[in-house]
Amino acid sequence: MIAARLQSEPFDSAIVQTALLAGRTDLGAAVAFIGLVRADEGLVALTLEHYPAMTLAQMQAIAADAAGRWPDTIGTIIHRHGRLLPGDSIVLVVTASPHRAHAFAAAQFLMDWLKTKAPFWKREEWADGTTRWVEAKGIDDAAAERW
């Protein structure tokens, strides 16, 4: 089971990971990935717009796909929306499995697909008052297609 959550509030990755692993003694590996707002020169804020009626369902579909590929792997994915500041966390992927290969692979898969198959759009605010929509990157599409 890989659970998905969509929220504007910050998350505490340690609490999420502890909750995921609670009561399990068969797991040998846990992986946590956090995506952050990077303070590129002059960046003031990053706003995540999304498609409310579709976003969570799409995140759940991506999670279900991962669970099907790595049935021994459990996880939680959290994606934030709204206006975020440099240093803020955007996305959390936590996975755990009996052996590390599946935990690593599932985490990477989840991130690659969240970046390319979940309906979010990033808008940057710059110190000079301008805004700019982030362009999708071919390298992200390539990363998603290798699965």
Binding site: L114, K115, A118, F120, W121, D140
Partner: peptide, 8 residues
């Protein structure tokens, strides 16, 4: 209708 997605 929207641009290519850029979440994550």
């Amino acid at each position: 209708i929207f641009p290519p997605v850029t979440g994550g």
